[in-house]
């Protein structure tokens, strides 16, 4: 009885909640079309324009607003995310594969891995910087120290994804392959891997996006050359202009493009499975 009253109330509440989550984005999106270069990062919109988008790509005449230092940092971020993705996924698949058998110390190793996603970036960032700076005496770079902390952060995600996938994996197809005289390594390549591939894809997506957007670890561990989040952070301290908003819209679009590619790949494999299931019904 109460739920008849409560449910619509909660429904309205959830709409407000979603508004709370998305509100800032809409405002950001609107302001990214502010007139330039005089228009500031606030209302009212003087005149709708795509000035700040052209500004990002250097298509506007030079003005008092310096262009965002994006080109190189974008390249570094993508490269770093790619390196991290490959390493984390390989480590994740290997570790999850090991966890299919019980072994002594498995509980300890599990917590050791999962700790990587729990410890805040300031701590891993600081610790790795100390290690590089004061113990090893090496310079910090985005491709060395920052890369290492990124893997510490993303490997647990890849590991957990693969663990969930392999938990549901029926090992008898592997035993079948061994009984046919096929070595365990070849069995992994020819049977296990193709079957867990959707999971691997998810693990890769996780690792890539987490690394691409990673900020606090990178701030400490990356040294002189900036990645994309660092370049954005750099604009915080000085006056912000709508070009940062325009850039925010663009990165969001990029993330969604990535997500769409993933969604298409996944739905293709799901549809193939469905088609097979349907043919099974016919037979």
């Amino acid at each position: 009885m109460e739920s008849r009253v409560l449910k619509p109330v909660l429904a309205v509440y959830v709409v407000l909640f979603i508004l709370f989550l998305y509100g800032p984005f809409f405002v950001l999106g609107i302001l990214s079309f502010q007139q330039g270069p005089e228009g500031g990062p606030q209302f009212p919109i003087i005149e709708w324009s795509t000035y700040w988008y052209r500004h990002i790509f250097g298509l506007t005449p030079p003005s008092r607003v310096a262009p965002l230092p994006l080109g190189e940092s974008l390249f570094r971020s993508l490269t770093l995310a790619f390196m991290t993705m490959v390493t984390s996924t390989v480590l994740g698949v290997m570790s999850a594969q090991a966890f299919r058998k019980k072994f002594t110390g498995s509980g300890l190793v599990f917590y050791l891995i999962v700790l990587g996603m729990m410890v805040p970036g300031v701590l891993t960032g600081l610790g790795t910087s100390l290690l590089a700076n004061n113990i090893l005496g090496i310079e910090r770079h985005w491709w060395s120290t920052a890369f290492v902390t990124h893997v510490v952060y993303t490997f647990p995600f890849a590991f957990l994804v693969m663990l969930a996938i392999l938990n549901r994996f029926d090992g008898s197809v592997e035993e079948a392959a061994w009984s046919l005289g096929v070595s365990p390594w070849k069995t992994f390549r020819k049977v296990t891997f193709p079957l867990i591939f959707p999971g691997v894809l998810s693990a890769m997506l996780f690792a890539f996006t987490l690394s691409y957007d990673e900020f606090s670890r990178t701030l400490f561990a990356s040294g002189r050359d900036q990645t994309l989040p660092l370049a954005i952070y750099g604009t915080f301290s000085v006056e912000i202009h709508p070009n940062v908003f325009a850039f925010g819209v663009l990165t969001t679009v990029f993330s969604f493009a990535l997500l769409s590619v993933y969604a298409i790949l996944m739905s293709l494999s799901v549809r193939r499975a469905k088609k097979i299931a349907m043919q099974e019904d016919i037979v």
């Binding site: 035993e175 061994w178 005289g181 070595s183 069995t187």
Partner: peptide, 9 residues
């Protein structure tokens, strides 16, 4: 190991 035994399953 299983794959070197030549026993069908």
């Amino acid at each position: 190991p299983a794959h070197e035994r030549g026993i069908g399953f």
